[in-house]
Design a protein around this nucleic acid. Structure first.
Lengths: 329, 329
DNA sequence: TTGTAGGCGTTATCAC
DNA sequence: GTGATAACGCCTACAA
């Protein structure tokens, strides 16, 4: 039999002050200059009666919800969750709450989600994807400040990983270890991540004065099987590479097998660098995989920062992909 | 220069009806029996003026927020995220929204999170943990219906995986494949998952008329390294097991290495079953790992179902751990 | 069928 | 220093 919730009125009545006064002390407003005595009595009453301000009512009157909406196709994924995580942490630190809805990529659900969030009067939205890709967002999304994370649509501000820099970083790690012939096991050349990473790869080679050999650049899908096959092709070349830069850790996982199958060892005979830093693969492979990480947490945090910036989201940002050093090169 | 939001009043004025009438048609109330004509005009106006009901205002007046709070230490984890995912999906289907706050297990943050959620007037809360364990929740949590997921505190209703059933299932899979000597690489015997799984293991053996050999039961931590070491011990026994039931997929990953190192093969020589169904390990191991899955999604969905059940959360539930058949036995 | 009026719990404006 | 009083946007008896 839960008693009626205690309201601000109850507090006011209890301490014999007006609602206004109570509101002021609870919101810690100093401009209205209230006696220490009254302040204390109010706080005591709050504690004694177990009063909790009603955020909904407050929002209605104050016209701010402190809510940020998130619509994303990221679900259980072992990775990518970092975006939501980073956003959540950043939001929490600013007293904002996230309203997250997972859409599984279904456009119908996305539109419904945006509507629902708009009805909740979110003050901004984040649209985040698992894969780096171009998207078309529900148009209602533009009704509030919105930032795209890990995706872009040519119009809205976005936060993207700097794939080119990542590609360069990974490649250079191999070069620094003395490798001159470095194979690139790329993703489907059409996807944004692939073009960026390849550009970075070529740039790193150029900077080291190493000519790019097209035969050393192959591509496949993001699976261990694919990595295995592509690595095998590369290793069976007449003049095989001694370093392998794989565009996903899964591919690197497959590459390990190809290397092993040829009686070679990582890293003594072949240096391998992955991409994604999927802990569960990278850290537990033997030897542990040196890989380029996608800065998910930072991307999520950056998006929130852009949204809460009083000057508005700005144009967009790109975030570096740091190298995670382990033992495969 | 965003025009003032359009309110219900605007609609009413626009169509020349009262707010009441508009409210009724928008909320689809049939009891009040309104002319088709009026209904249509209202909906047209809604569309034309781009009206969106204000969920906050609605909550205030109707005394229901359709909000469920989630406090959890599950973050980016490659697994466990399924709980939030399952909860989110179930909530969405019921028109509820989740207010999720990740606490990283910090009790201070947890308490603050609960307060914040209570101020938002969530109608129920879910407290979910990554690991199956006993917890102490912030006491304010009991102010609304709450269910614990993947954890328990002896008082609140909870949703737990049926570890014993899972232990039995995994073990039986090995037995069914003809194995009679089956090693159990358990977790720290003190943790709930370990006691449940071991009980299931012993039960399966008993049902098959196989005596339990204490030397076949070892334990370690949930790492590949630990799995490697424990498996090695077992395989080096005078009378080694032919089947290995590992309490985590990571352990199984290590066990694979131990098997391989001894010139044996999975599954021909040694059958291996894991636990957790961490896709990224289980599916990409060679051969792919047969493993017992933790029903995260179902647990999350069950929690939401309990919360939205008009009869209240009830006492608690336990959910089965299905076997995911791959190729390691 | 439709309209009136009061209430939900706060904030905010101004006067006292 | 403090207190009426009017929003905020919507719901809902109750009346017409």
């Amino acid at each position: 039999m839960p008693r009626r919730r205690v309201s601000m009125d109850d507090i006011a009545r209890h301490v014999g002050l007006s609602r206004t006064t109570v509101s002021f002390v609870i919101n810690g407003r100093t401009d209205m200059n209230i006696s220490e005595e009254s302040r204390k009595r109010v706080w005591d009453a709050v504690r004694d009666l177990g009063y909790r301000p009603d955020a909904g009512a407050r929002s209605l009157a104050a016209r701010r919800t402190d809510l940020i909406g998130v619509v994303t196709d990221i679900t259980t994924s072992p990775f990518g969750g970092g975006i939501v995580q980073g956003a959540q942490d950043a939001a929490w630190r600013q007293g904002k709450l996230l309203l997250i809805v997972g859409t599984d990529g279904d456009p119908g659900v996305e539109a419904a989600a945006v509507d629902m969030l708009l009805e909740r009067r979110v003050e901004g939205m984040i649209y985040a994807t698992l894969a780096h890709r171009e998207v078309a967002v529900p148009k209602a999304m533009t009704e509030v400040p919105t930032v795209l994370v890990h995706c872009f649509d040519g119009a809205l501000p976005h936060v993207l990983p700097d794939e080119a820099e990542g590609g360069r970083t990974g490649t250079r790690r191999l070069i620094d270890a003395g490798h001159r012939r470095i194979g690139l096991i790329n993703l489907d050349p059409a996807v944004p991540a692939a073009v960026g990473r390849r550009a970075g790869y070529e740039r790193a080679l150029a900077e080291a004065g190493i000519p790019v050999d097209p035969r050393l650049i192959v591509s496949g899908d993001a699976t261990a099987t694919s990595g295995f096959e592509r690595a095998a092709e590369l290793l069976d070349l007449d003049d095989p590479p001694t370093g392998l830069f794989c565009c996903t850790d899964r591919m690197a996982m497959g590459a390990y097998d190809a290397v092993r199958e040829r009686g070679l060892r990582v890293p003594q005979d072949i240096g391998v660098v992955g991409y994604d830093n999927q802990e569960i693969i990278a850290a537990y492979l033997r030897p542990p995989l040196t890989t380029v990480a996608l800065p998910f947490d930072e991307m999520g945090a950056a998006a929130v920062a852009m949204l809460t910036d009083p000057d508005g989201p700005g144009a967009g940002r790109t975030i570096g992909c740091p190298l995670v050093e382990r033992a495969s090169v």
